[in-house]
Simulated scan of single mutants.
Amino acid sequence: MAPPEDAPTIIDIPIESQSDLASESDLVELDLDELSDTWRDRLSAILQQDALSLDVIRRNREFDPEMQIQAATTMAGVSDAAACRLSWSGRPKVEQARGVLSFAFHNLLEGSQRRGLNFNMMWEQLQNARVNAHDFSAQVDQQMGYARPVQTRNDVIKTVLKFHRNWMGFTIPSMLRATQAVQGEVLAERDGRTKGNYEYLLREVESLYLPFAVMVLEDYGLPTPLGLKLTEHKLRGTDLPEALESLLFVAERSETLDDLSGVERWILDDVVEGLGGVSSMRVEIGLM
């Protein structure tokens, strides 16, 4: 029997083929003359509206274009008090942070993006992460109060970690960036209000409300509990170079080493060695 003939493998790239598998978020990125007649007609409501510029819609590509447009229309009609809760910069008050996140949750997220949470559930978990940022066990204890009868503590630990990873690591920062872009155009440029800058809140959420140096150095092998302990010995840094320089400084101080256990000193030494810095153990035995 003859072997079967090779069949060509056809890979459909929706944004290039402009097939029905392509999303509006993808195709709105294309210039008008690159769109097929079919997709030009399907996108006409997005391309011809004036509630929100294409530039903002394209920047917020994680979110459905039509929902962005509706969010802009809604924002343009909010009360003065609500507009004030969206028009701030720097460190927000609780009502300002809640106002922005509530607006984003209800106006930008599709059902599938909410992952089974309502806004109050998301807000309570975020506040749990903020209040108990330095104590993961306390975060789990608090979340246990909302656990279903069949859930074990291990299940709740997974829930907390999943919220950190998915919501605080991606969804909430994306919500803040998108709402800031819409606010900047709808309320700041057109209505003359203060231009929103949610960077402070965004960075706090992304860092799980931990000091920046602690969060960034975890990627270099420094466990969070040890990093928090080192902040008591002046571990600082608002960017990566500052954090690394501060770690090397802290690791050489005898006051730091005296406060660490043998295991903690071993971990710190290993991290510093990996960075090419001075080894605390070599300093201790007088080889450097």
Rank of each mutant, 00 (worst) to 15 (best):
L47Y: 05
D41R: 12
S19M: 11
W39V: 00
T38G: 09
L43R: 02
D26G: 13
L54W: 07
D55Y: 11
D41V: 09
S36D: 02
S53K: 07
V56N: 04
L54A: 10
S23V: 05
L32P: 04
S44C: 05
S17T: 15
L47H: 09
E24V: 07
V28M: 05
R58N: 05
L43Y: 10
R59H: 14
L32T: 11
S36M: 02
E24F: 04
A22R: 02
E34R: 12
S36P: 04
D37F: 00
S23E: 10
A51W: 01
D31C: 14
S17E: 14
Q48R: 15
Q18L: 06
R40G: 02
T38Y: 06
R59G: 07
S36E: 03
R59K: 15
W39D: 00
L32G: 00
R40Q: 09
V28N: 03
R40M: 09
L35G: 02
V28K: 02
R58V: 04
Q49Y: 10
D26P: 10
D20E: 07
D41A: 13
D33P: 06
T38N: 06
E29K: 00
T38L: 07
L47P: 01
L54I: 11
L21Q: 11
L27T: 04
D20M: 00
D33I: 05
L21K: 14
S23H: 12
R40K: 13
D33C: 07
I57R: 09
Q48M: 11
W39F: 02
A22P: 09
Q49W: 05
Q48V: 10
D37C: 00
D41Q: 10
R59E: 11
D55I: 14
A22N: 03
E34G: 04
Q48S: 15
I46T: 14
E34L: 06
D50S: 14
S17V: 09
D55V: 15
E16D: 12
S25H: 01
L52K: 05
L54N: 10
S19D: 07
D41K: 08
S19G: 15
R59P: 01
L35C: 07
D55W: 13
E34H: 10
I46Y: 12
D31Q: 15
L52R: 01
S44I: 01
L35D: 00
V56K: 02
Q49M: 08
L27N: 01
E16Q: 13
E24T: 06
S44T: 09
D20W: 00
L27I: 09
S25C: 09
A45L: 08
L52P: 08
I57K: 10
V28T: 04
D33T: 08
E34D: 13
Q49F: 06
S19A: 12
S44M: 07
L43D: 09
